[in-house]
């Protein structure tokens, strides 16, 4: 099964080819990024989400090379289902040491969910009790941008967004990813 193979690969790369840092350094750094955005945009959380997505997109464009180099994949994933497993078991593993669960496929295999049991970016975090943040802010929105940017570089145009988050009081943290199309020779659309 692709999932097991991907999991083993992810584990192996994490153990042998990844330079590591203290997790809390990353958690606290991300926290200060989000807090600063909220301050700069005066708690316009919709705008903060956009900025996080944009930052994530920039990261994704660069991160993909790192991922390809570390995972040493010689060939492209043969279908979107395989892509999903690689994202979850290898991609997230080698950068954040987590393996979200892939689930809820649509029958056309173009849409799936990632469920995050653990989310190191959200450790210690409690959203502000201002009556709005839990309805408007997606704290980990940077992930959506990262996926969008990274996959665009390997010729996939996807749309990603969160549909639930434990920080909002939901029971799970779940992201929904949709394959819009494979990009052929067209230039990727400019991000504004």
């Amino acid at each position: 099964m692709a999932a097991n193979k991907a999991a083993r690969m992810g584990e192996e790369v994490w153990k042998t080819r990844v330079d590591k840092v203290n997790a809390e350094l990353v958690t606290l750094t991300y926290g200060t990024i989000v807090a600063q955005l909220c301050k700069d945009y005066e708690n316009d959380y919709v705008e903060v989400n956009k900025q996080l997505d944009k930052m994530g997109y920039n990261i994704g464009l660069r991160l993909i090379e790192d991922y390809l180099a570390k995972s040493n994949t010689m060939r492209r994933c043969s279908n979107f289902r395989e892509t999903a497993e690689m994202i979850a078991k290898v991609g997230f593993k080698i950068f954040l040491n987590i393996t979200p669960t892939v689930t809820s496929w649509t029958s056309d295999s173009k849409q799936f969910s990632l469920i995050f049991e653990e989310n190191p970016l959200a450790d210690f975090v409690e959203l502000p009790d201002d009556g709005r943040s839990q309805d408007e802010l997606w704290y980990s929105n940077i992930f959506c941008g990262v996926l969008r940017g990274a996959l665009e570089m390997v010729q996939m145009q996807v749309e990603a967004h969160f549909i639930s988050d434990v920080l909002r009081g939901n029971d799970t943290t779940e992201m929904r990813i949709t394959l819009i199309r494979y990009i052929d020779d067209e230039m990727p659309q400019d991000d504004d």
């Binding site: 990844v18 330079d19 590591k20 840092v21 203290n22 997790a23 809390e24 350094l25 990353v26 958690t27 750094t29 991300y30 990024i33 990261i59 660069r62 991160l63 790192d66 080698i94 950068f95 954040l96 040491n97 190191p120 450790d123």
Partner: peptide, 15 residues
């Protein structure tokens, strides 16, 4: 819980 947990240096660097 996260006292000795680790993430990738690359993850930090990108952020």
């Amino acid at each position: 819980r996260s006292r000795t947990q680790e993430l990738s240096q690359a993850g930090f660097a990108y952020l």
